[in-house]
Structures are given as structure tokens and as C-alpha cells.
Amino acid sequence: MATPPQRQVPFALVRLAADAGAPFPGLVVGDHVLDLRAALPGEADTVAGLLEHWDASLPRLRALAGDPAQPWQALDGLRVLAPVEPRQIFQSGANYRQHVIDLEVAHRPKDDPRPVEQARAEAAALMDRRAAEDLPYVFVGLPSSVTGPYDDVVLPAWAEKPDWELELAVVIGRRAHRVSEAAALDHVAGYTIANDLTDRATVFRRDMPAIGTDWLRSKNAPGFTPLGPWLVPAEFVDDPGKLQVTLKLNGDTMQDESTADMLFGVARLISYISESAELLPGDLVLTGSPAGNGMHWGRLLRDGDVMEGTITGLGTQRTRCVAEAAATS
């Protein structure tokens, strides 16, 4: 047995599998893990079960995290899966100020007479007004797009412009319907990392431009939402509005921005979503992606690319892109 942790430290939840065995929930402390099926028999068969009764689960998890007498084992040799299996995924778009300013300037008409500096200043003023007066932009994703934090990402043969979008993901721990912004964070179990992949070529319908965006086609291929590695409880995240979001592509930094650049913070997003829908324990709220996507760099994803996504205090996910033909040959 691996040497157990000797003192209580912050912990996280994880879903793991050994060889071909069934997934199981684990409690991570440092580089050790505790199988919660044995530690909490009948109570912790799944992470979803823990989240369904989060108020009761949390104190038990705190006690276990500080108990060196538990049968801790090394994480090495275990497959790390997506930390949650959400029933619903709510995704925020155009939610980073700098990112939207970049898009506004990049896509302005060719005959726009304004200097770039003026266009940026006016776009910035527009974003400030939007944050103060407008509503978040949120759409719904499919749970079947979720994959693990170290799994290969298959790029479908039809995806002409696959792109990365690293995001802070919020995990719901209490049902939330019509909650105020002031009470919204009370419904958060914790946070994790999501890479919300998008095929830019299919975002807008070519056959019916007036109908607008097609998020089903562009964002929901199997594996297009690498998630994890950990679910870090909210009590260990001092301020979700002050986290650094960093994505590297083949070792080169492409995104590197603070969540302070969000137009609508976590509490505002949850409150807004809950006005129309009921958020359930284990659901995800993806908070949008900062500047530095592939369209900005003129470099989209291709076979063999490796993405590394890190958010302060939430770990790092590492996924390799595999073209569909290569993945199925």
C-alpha cells in the first residue's frame, strides 16, 4: 500500500477505472486516492450520488480527507475519467470581454473607415454596456460530448475547422430554480476544466443563414468536451472570478487569460439560467472561453496535435487529437 497522506489537505473528487473494471468515485488528496465505494459503503457508488446529496456528502468527505488510517493508494495505474456525468450542460458564449472585442474588430466590414484603435475602443465600450445592461448568452450542450481529461479527441471527418475553447466549468451541487444572483454560489458543488471544442465551419447554417447558429452540429460530436481531471470543491477555490485559464497547443501558449475578463460571472450565469431552467446536481455550467482560439491564430486543430489545458488550482488536462480516419483504421 502506498504511504498515506499525513495531514489534512484540500481534496478533490475523481472518477477512476482500473483496467476493464467499472468506474468508481475516488477522493484525491495530493497524489493519493481513496476508493469511496469502500470508505462510504452504500453512500458513494458514484460521483453523481455524492452530488445528489452534496450537503450530507461534504462533511463525510472532509473527515475522510484528513484520515491517514484509510486505505489510500497511488493514482498511478488508474485511468482518470471525466469527473462528472452531467444530465444537462449549459454553455455560455461570447462571455470574455477581450475575446469578443477581438472578434468584433476581426470581422468588421472591409470598407470600415475606422482605424483599428478606434474600432477596438468602440467595441470595448459596447462590451462594457453589455455587461452592465444586457443578458448572458447561453445555449445547451449534450452530455454525450463529454470525454475524459486524458482521452484522445477524435476529429470528425466532416469537421473542416475544429477549434479549442478552454473554459472554467461549474458543477452544480444543489437544485437551482429561479435563484437570485446573491444566492447562486450556494448551489455550486465545485469547479473543473472543460475544453469546449467547436467546428467553426458549421457554427452557422449555410443552407439557411437566417436561422442562425447550429450548436448541435458544431459542438456536440462525441468527445468534443474533454472534462477534468478533478472536481475541486468550491471551498478550495477562493474566487472563481480570479483564475488563470491557460491552453497550450504542442507546447505553445495559445490562451492565457484570467476569469476576471468574463462579462458575466459565475453567480450571474447561474441566476440567469435558473430563471428558465432547473439546474440539477451534477449539471455543468460552462462559462465561456477567453481570447486565443484557433481562429484568432489562423491555426485550427489537426491530427496529432496535443492540447494541455490548465486552470488555477484545478489541475491540467492533456488530450491528443486524432483524425477520424486514423482513429478508425
Rank of each mutant, 00 (worst) to 15 (best):
A189S: 03
V188T: 05
D261E: 14
R205F: 12
N293F: 05
G241Y: 03
L284Y: 06
I211T: 09
V237I: 13
F204H: 15
G288C: 09
E278A: 15
Y191M: 05
Y272H: 15
R200I: 14
D239G: 01
A182I: 11
R206L: 15
E257V: 14
S218H: 12
D199Y: 13
V245F: 00
G212K: 09
T253K: 15
G294A: 01
D214P: 08
A210F: 14
L216Y: 10
A194I: 06
Y191D: 06
K242Q: 14
G223Y: 05
A277M: 14
D207Y: 13
A234I: 01
S289V: 07
S271C: 04
M208T: 10
E275P: 00
L279A: 01
G294N: 01
L249E: 04
L216D: 06
P229M: 10
A184F: 07
I270W: 12
T253L: 12
S271P: 01
D252I: 10
A234V: 12
L197R: 02
S274D: 03
P226S: 09
L227W: 03
G212D: 08
R268P: 00
A234W: 00
S276L: 12
L185D: 08
G265T: 01
T259G: 03
W297E: 04
H187C: 08
K242E: 14
A291G: 06
M208N: 14
N220D: 15
A189E: 04
I193R: 01
A201W: 11
N220T: 15
W215N: 10
K219A: 06
V203A: 12
T202N: 12
P240V: 09
T253G: 12
N293A: 10
